[in-house]
């Protein structure tokens, strides 16, 4: 049968190949070329050598500000998301009644469209009449101004991110279902208590899924954009100016398309670097049991 397979295989993947060339490879190379140009949509792009990269590293403090912001967000939201996701999945893996209801409740926030949750959270976090500060006031605390405060704006967005943990929770749940019951039985035979079973059976067996979510979560966090665009537009005092938001403003508000391309490439290198590091760390903690 192998003789016809070459043709059939390439025919079936041909749309994907065309897509790769047109929507990935071309933009990828073009943005590399653009990153060495000044381009304000008035053609043609004009070559400026490494000027854009020099500007990033020496002349634009907002690049560093936005990078720090996104690192802050990633460092808090990704681990917190993993802890919450795994924790919820473990609870939901128990054999109790009403699981479907709980599962839906936890998943609900992550299917609500981002723009709607953003609107909702602006309202929840309203310093004067929002739900959060009203609750705090009941226990005698005057809450901060959340999104309008330099100190609290990023934590607010992290809370909101953790609130949408349902998607990865489902993936952990799927991972838990894949752990063979025989392993638990063996652990029970060895006299392991519940905590030990979680610690020495469940978690190690779950590490491939955690790894998957860690990589995807990290990539997503580095590109954090919509919530900040809708809710804070980068303010106050650039405290929520995340890298992708800064890039967007530079490109479409100040028409520095070449500069924004250089920023995109630096982001790409960072993401590839972090991904590579994560893959390198795999053998230390990820258990591929099969």
């Amino acid at each position: 049968m192998a003789r016809r397979n070459n043709l059939a295989g390439w025919v079936l993947v041909s749309p994907v190949v065309v897509g790769l060339l047109v929507f990935t490879l071309y933009p990828f190379l073009a943005s590399l070329a653009l990153s060495f140009c000044e381009y304000d949509l008035f053609p043609p792009p004009r070559g400026v050598g490494a000027w854009n990269y020099e500007t990033m590293f020496t002349r634009d403090p907002l690049v560093w500000k936005s990078l720090t912001n996104v690192l802050y967000y990633t460092a808090l939201a990704v681990p917190l998301g993993i802890v919450m996701g795994v924790g919820l999945a473990l609870l939901l893996d128990a054999k109790i009644k009403g699981l479907a209801v709980y599962r839906t409740l936890f998943f609900l926030p992550s299917i609500v469209p981002v723009v709607a949750t953003s609107v909702l959270w602006i309202w929840l976090l309203n310093p004067q009449i929002g739900l959060v500060n009203t609750l705090l006031r009941l226990v005698g605390i005057e809450g901060p101004t959340w999104l309008a405060s330099v100190a609290w704006s990023k934590p607010s967005l992290v809370f909101m991110g953790v609130w949408g943990v349902g998607g990865s929770m489902l993936i952990y749940l799927a991972g838990l279902k894949d752990i063979p019951a025989s392993l638990y039985e063996a652990a029970v035979v060895d006299g392991a208590n519940a905590w030990q079973r979680v610690r020495y059976v469940t978690l190690p067996m779950l590490t491939p899924v955690i790894f998957f979510n860690l990589v995807m979560g990290m990539i997503g966090a580095f590109q954090y954009f919509t919530q900040a665009y809708v809710m804070t537009q980068g303010g106050p005092l650039d405290s929520t100016r995340f890298y992708a938001l800064h890039l967007f403003f530079e490109a479409f508000q100040y028409l520095k398309m070449g500069y924004a391309s250089a920023m995109a490439w630096v982001l790409f290198i960072i993401v590839v670097g972090v991904t590579a590091l994560l893959f390198r760390s795999q053998h230390r903690w990820v258990h591929y049991g099969r």
């Binding site: 000044e38 381009y39 070559g47 400026v48 002349r59 106050p236 005092l237 070449g258």
Partner: peptide, 28 residues
Amino acid sequence: RRHLSPREALEQAARETQRELENMGIGR
């Protein structure tokens, strides 16, 4: 927000805007 004194804040904004102005059209 008392992040900088009024003078410092204006100095920084001036510096950044000046740079933006001078770097505009660098390719032309």
